[in-house]
Write a protein that binds this DNA or RNA. Structure first.
Length: 395
DNA sequence: CTAGGGTTAG
C-alpha cells in the first residue's frame, strides 16, 4: 500500500492518498493492519499539501493509538506537517515531547518558525540547538541564513558564513551558496553577495542568477540587474532558462528605472518565449511601474484588462499612487473597487481621505471619515515580534 | 528504504 501512496503523493493526487488511507483504516481487523509508520509519513505529507489541519490532528491521535509516537521520523514529520498548516505551537509541542532530537528535527522546528514569519525565534532555536551539542549541517545553515535574510541580520549572517567556511569537512553545496547570496543581498551587503556570485563561476543555477538579479533590483541597481538577466540567457553560460521568480526581479528592476516599455516587453516574453504564466506579483510589479511613472490611467486600464482578477494589494498600489499624485477622480473609482473586495479595510479610507485633504476637498474628506465610523476597523498590521533579538552565535 | 533546504510586487 505504501508504494501506491507514494505514487499518489508524487503525482500530487493527495485526495487519493486520503481516500485509500481512510478505507484501509476503516477495514482494518484487530492489530492485523497494513498501516505502518511509513504510511503515516505519506498521509501526513498529503495532509500538508492539502493544508488540512483537522486531518493532521486526526492522524496525530491515530499515531498515539498505534504507538508510533516515539518514532523520530514520525515525530519530525508531525513537526513539519503542523508547521506547514501554520500551527507552529502544535509543531513545537510535538518537538518538546521528543526524547531524542537530532539535526533533522531541530532543522524542522527552525524552518517552522522561518516559514511562519518568526525569524528571530528561529535564530534563537538555532543557537539552542548548538547549546545542546547538535551540530548544524548544510540544511540547518541554509534555513538559518533565510532567517537572517528575513530579519536583515547582517552580523549573524556573516557569522554563519564564516562558520561554514572555516569548519573542517563542511560541504557548501549549491543551495547553501544561494542562501548566502540571498542573505547578503537582503541584509544590504550587495558587494558580498556579488563576490559569492562571481566566485561560483559555472556552477550557478537559475536560483543563483535570480537571487543576484533580485538583489541588484532591490538595491536600485536596475541596469546591472537587467545586464545579468541578458547575460544568463546568453550562450556564455549554457542555456539558462529563467523562471517566474527571475521575472519578478526583472520587473522590479524596470520599475526602479522607470522602463515602462521594457517592462511590458519582458512581461510579454515571459509567456511567449518561456511559457511562464504571469502571477499576481508580476502584474503588481507592472502596475507599480506604471504608477511610478505617473501613468495612472494606463495603470488603471492595465488592471482592468489583466487576465486575472486583481487582488486588493494591486488596487491598493494604484490607490496609493492616486493619493500621492492627487488624482482624486481615479482614486475614488479605485476605492470603489477596493470597497467591494475588502469593505472593512480602514487604511484605504484613510488613504482616500488624505487624498481629499490634499486636494482641499474637505466635504469629501468628511464623508469618508463619517463612513469609516460605521465600519469596523481591521488593522493593516497586527503582529510584532516580542522576542529578544539574537546577539551572538555559538561557534 | 522511511524526516528537513527556495528566489517572489506593496
Amino acid at each position: 500500500m505504501n508504494a501506491i501512496l507514494k505514487g499518489h503523493v508524487k503525482s500530487k493526487s493527495t485526495n487519493k492518498v486520503l481516500l485509500l488511507f481512510r478505507n484501509t483504516w476503516r477495514r482494518r481487523r484487530g492489530d492485523d493492519c497494513s498501516i505502518d509508520s511509513s504510511t503515516v509519513l505519506l498521509v501526513l505529507k498529503a495532509c500538508m499539501m492539502r493544508s488540512c489541519e483537522e486531518e493532521i490532528k486526526h492522524v496525530h491521535t491515530l499515531v498515539l493509538k498505534l504507538g508510533f509516537h516515539c518514532i523520530i521520523f514520525v515525530q519530525t514529520m508531525l513537526v513539519n506537517a503542523y508547521s506547514g498548516v501554520g500551527l507552529v505551537n502544535d509543531a513545537h509541542k510535538v518537538f518538546d515531547e521528543m526524547r531524542e532530537r537530532n539535526v533533522v528535527c531541530w532543522t524542522g522546528l527552525i524552518s517552522a518558525y522561518v516559514d511562519n514569519g518568526r525569524p528571530s525565534r528561529a535564530l534563537k532555536l538555532f543557537r539552542d540547538m548548538q547549546m545542546e551539542n547538535v551540530e548544524p549541517d548544510s540544511v540547518t545553515v541554509t534555513v538559518a541564513l533565510c532567517a537572517c535574510a528575513d530579519l536583515g541580520a547582517l552580523e549573524m549572517g556573516e557569522w554563519i558564513h564564516s562558520y561554514v567556511r572555516h569548519k573542517r569537512g563542511f560541504k557548501m553545496d549549491l543551495q547553501l551558496k544561494n542562501a548566502v547570496i540571498n542573505m547578503y543581498a537582503k541584509c544590504g551587503d550587495i558587494g558580498a553577495a556579488r563576490r559569492m556570485f562571481d566566485d561560483m563561476g559555472g556552477s550557478r543555477n537559475v536560483t543563483t542568477w535570480t537571487s543576484m538579479i533580485v538583489g541588484h533590483a532591490l538595491h536600485g541597481q536596475a541596469e546591472e540587474a537587467l545586464r545579468l538577466f541578458e547575460e544568463m540567457r546568453s550562450r556564455k553560460h549554457g542555456v539558462m532558462v529563467p523562471n517566474d521568480v527571475t521575472y519578478i526581479g526583472v520587473l522590479m528592476a524596470c520599475s526602479h528605472a522607470g522602463l515602462v516599455e521594457e517592462g511590458r516587453r519582458h512581461l510579454e516574453s515571459m509567456s511567449k518565449v518561456y511559457g511562464l504564466s504571469p502571477r499576481m506579483a508580476h502584474y503588481g510589479c507592472m502596475v507599480d511601474l506604471l504608477c511610478r511613472r505617473g501613468q495612472l490611467n494606463d495603470a488603471y486600464q492595465f488592471v482592468v484588462h489583466m487576465p486575472i482578477r486583481a487582488n486588493a494589494v494591486v488596487w491598493r498600489t494604484l490607490l496609493g499612487a492616486c493619493s500621492l499624485q492627487g488624482n482624486i477622480q481615479l482614486g475614488a473609482k479605485v476605492r470603489r473597487q477596493l470597497l467591494e473586495l475588502e469593505p472593512d479595510h480602514a487604511r484605504d479610507n484613510v488613504t482616500m481621505s488624505n487624498a481629499y485633504a490634499a486636494a482641499c476637498m474637505w466635504d469629501a474628506k468628511e464623508n469618508v471619515r463619517a463612513q469609516m465610523k460605521h465600519t469596523r476597523k481591521v488593522p493593516g498590521c497586527s503582529s510584532i515580534e516580542l522576542e529578544s533579538s539574537v546577539h551572538e552565535f555559538v561557534s
